[in-house]
Design a protein around this nucleic acid. Structure first.
Lengths: 213, 213
DNA sequence: GCGTGTGAAGATATTCACAGCC
DNA sequence: GGCTGTGAATATCTTCACACGC
């Protein structure tokens, strides 16, 4: 039974909310003031009832016969997701990938501020990437504390990903974005999201295969 | 009722298979010849019965009391997923992200060969990235045909993503890997996978929020 | 005895259908 | 009339429990 502010929210719902936020932001930028679940759904390839049901877990944001006030719903959802705060993130592994992540402006624009960069190779340590100096991974524990890092982004090779993750977990970090092509194991109170384009491709070839042969 | 070679395979199963393939490859590299669903599950954070059930959609690959022959299961799954073939891919949008994708060796290692690169900005067109010359996007249709491109990787800004996607779809490409931060709409016979680290972070903050306040 | 394979049961997630309000 | 919010129904996914083969 959906109700306000309860933590029995299905994870799949939580993972859809950011999409709603993004779509609402676009509508807002186009000066659209009101939107129906139908319109929002069309923009996202989701059914209207899916959206209404998802929203109902958090409150009654709409007006019957009318729809949702874009600004209001946006505010509410951003608050629900904690997107009205700033978050601090650190990147571990400053190779090609790590550097690309650090210089991608999209994170900062959404309130995810890169405040530290770590590597283990003596070569890169001390070099500057944007505003940050690459630190030795040995300083991880200290820096996570001193900079109150909320999220760690892992961009090390697969072989090192688990041991780096273990260190990160020991620092009491509860959110990890993992770019390494390996599924890292963490305690159940730590969230991990995987960014894994190769896996994504490999699940599409299943369908391609049955197509042309 | 699970059975051999039927296309009523749940999508969620298809999306787990590549993980199994990866884990099995690692086991193989460590010269491990036999693995139980329990062991495989532990390595992946999945229950053993999940694995057995998933595999049962495609055949009976194990031996009771013993487990699965690693090499055999690997072959079978790679075949099921079409990973025993080579695939051709093109990247559209050769900015920082697109260049990083083109120079990432992980795709080629897994049989995904980058055979073309496109951009719309006259500046980059004609420049060389690795083995490829960046082509004008106008050559898309011709090149998709001539190089028999299976998969298109979209790395253009959000604003252009939908129109580029529409062009790609018109070329009869059935698989798209989308790095643009927007959910593109496609006909139901086209598969899209989204690579969207910001969305991933935004669904984690929901949990972080309730943590420390 | 051990571990697979799988119907049946249980849990989750989505969709339907409609009451209620603007 | 149009659109939300939501119990109930349905569909999908996961887990249980156990028969069977090595």
């Amino acid at each position: 039974m959906p109700g306000k502010n309860n933590s029995n929210i299905p994870e799949v719902v939580v993972q859809r909310l950011p999409q709603y936020v993004r779509a609402l932001t676009q509508l807002h930028n186009r000066n659209i003031e009101v939107v129906s679940s139908k319109e929002l759904g069309d923009a996202l390839g989701v059914t209207p009832v899916q959206i209404r049901k998802d929203l109902s877990y958090f409150g009654r944001f709409g007006k019957q016969g009318r729809g949702y006030n874009v600004v209001f719903l946006l505010q509410e959802l951003r608050h629900v997701l904690g997107l009205d705060k700033q978050w601090t993130a650190a990147v571990i592994g400053i190779g090609r990938l790590g550097s690309a992540i650090l210089s991608y402006p999209g994170f900062g624009q959404e309130g995810f501020n890169m405040v530290a960069a770590f590597d283990s190779a003596p070569l890169g340590i001390g070099s500057r990437i944007g505003e940050l100096i690459v630190q030795n991974i040995d300083e991880l524990e200290r820096t996570v504390k001193s900079k109150a890092i909320d999220i760690v982004i892992i961009a090390v090779p697969a072989e090192q990903a688990q041991s780096v993750t273990d260190r990160v977990v020991k620092c009491r970090v509860k959110a990890i974005l993992n770019y390494a092509p390996i599924k890292v194991q963490v305690p159940s109170d730590v969230r991990v999201r995987e960014i894994d384009p190769v896996l994504a491709l490999q699940s599409m070839t299943f369908h391609l295969k049955s197509l042309h042969d």
